[in-house]
């Protein structure tokens, strides 16, 4: 067991994947010589060579399309999209090619890593949460890590998967430390997990908002309310069983994500919980999300992003229903 940052855990996971399978190659902008703008691939080109850790031109559509061709000839490309907003030029390749290939012919073991979300003062195009676009698309799988142990294991599991996976990394949490158990049996990739047990209300979050939800639970406990925090981990497929179980126990659900609420992941969760847990609900499912505007300027992003107070306020509203 060692204590490392989420960023370092990803680096260690990628290193192990490169060691374990010679067909794994990393591709992306500035990932080789520099080691990535967030240093996630630091040192990997030096150790594995520029045939396996490849600096590409700044051309996201071409990167993903090239990876499709590599995949069809037996490689397992792991792509880094430098910032969330940069994935949009590649959106066509991901949605039109990557997602649809298996349904009509054969699968593509591609992993597309995307540092996502705000909180680093980087404004629009560099702070976005595009997970709903990809979760909406059949044929893709979408996962989000929230702590170093998951970062280490989930990236390896994603690379070993024969399905295309959009792998979201909570960029503002890259520097947060936690334990990584490199010998433990990893938790299943597409399973949600109770991050903190509680009895009074359920808070569902993923990625950077897991930390926010856990902080809210700590604060709520001081006021005598025990929040159960669930880390979704997988957005597509959604693992709803632990959510249903929790809501049947607590009767209250708050969903937290940075992406705007409109037609988002929270709406899907609310719909499914309403379908499955209707008679257990003491209050409507509430969402704490980004507002329905483009990601705002750096000086106001703290007002845009869900925080501890907004989560607690939603919990209060649920109890006050």
């Amino acid at each position: 067991m060692e204590t490392v940052t989420i960023g370092k855990a990803l680096n260690l996971g990628l290193r192990r994947a490169l060691e374990d399978d010679p067909k794994v190659i990393l591709m992306g902008e500035d990932i080789g010589r520099l080691g990535g703008v967030f240093r996630i691939t630091d040192g990997l080109q030096k150790d594995f060579g520029d045939d396996r850790v490849i600096d590409t031109p700044l051309a996201e559509s071409g990167i993903v399309g090239t990876a499709v061709g590599l995949c069809l000839r037996g490689y397992r490309p792991v792509l880094e999209i430098q910032f969330d907003g940069f994935v949009y030029p590649a959106y066509d390749q991901i949605v039109s090619q990557v997602a649809k290939m298996h349904y009509r012919s054969r699968g593509l073991p591609i992993v597309i890593r995307i540092p996502f979300g705000g909180g680093i003062g980087a404004v629009e195009h560099h702070s976005e949460s595009p997970e709903a676009y990809f979760s909406h698309t059949a044929g893709l799988k979408v996962v989000v890590c929230a702590n170093p142990n998951d970062a280490y294991w989930m990236i390896q599991q994603a690379i070993a998967s024969d399905d295309p996976i959009i792998f979201f990394e909570p960029k503002r949490r890259y520097w947060e430390k936690g334990p990584v158990d490199t010998d433990a049996e990893p938790y299943p990739l597409h399973a949600a997990r109770v991050a903190r047990p509680g009895t009074d209300a359920t808070v569902v979050a993923y990625g950077p908002m897991v930390r926010t939800a856990l902080d809210a639970a700590t604060a709520a406990a001081e006021e005598g309310r025990e929040l159960e925090v669930i880390d979704l981990r997988s957005i597509s497929p959604l693992d709803m069983a632990p959510v249903y179980e929790s809501v049947r126990k607590t009767g209250r659900l708050v969903v937290v994500h940075e992406a705007p609420s409109n037609v988002g992941v929270g709406a899907e969760i609310a719909a499914r919980v309403t379908e499955q847990c209707f008679y257990s609900l003491e209050a409507p499912v509430l969402r704490v999300c980004g507002f329905n505007v483009p990601y705002p300027a750096a000086r106001v992003e703290e007002d845009f992003l869900p925080d501890l107070d907004r989560v607690l306020d939603a919990v209060d509203r649920s109890f006050g229903w």
């Binding site: 399309g65 061709g69 590599l70 069809l72 000839r73 490309p77 039109s96 090619q97």
Partner: peptide, 20 residues
């Protein structure tokens, strides 16, 4: 069916051949 999209895919396949 996406006009032009396969050019990149062919590049990847060619690259795979080179790597192999």
């Amino acid at each position: 069916a996406i006009v032009g999209a396969a050019g990149a895919i062919a590049c990847g396949a060619a690259w795979a051949g080179m790597l192999a």
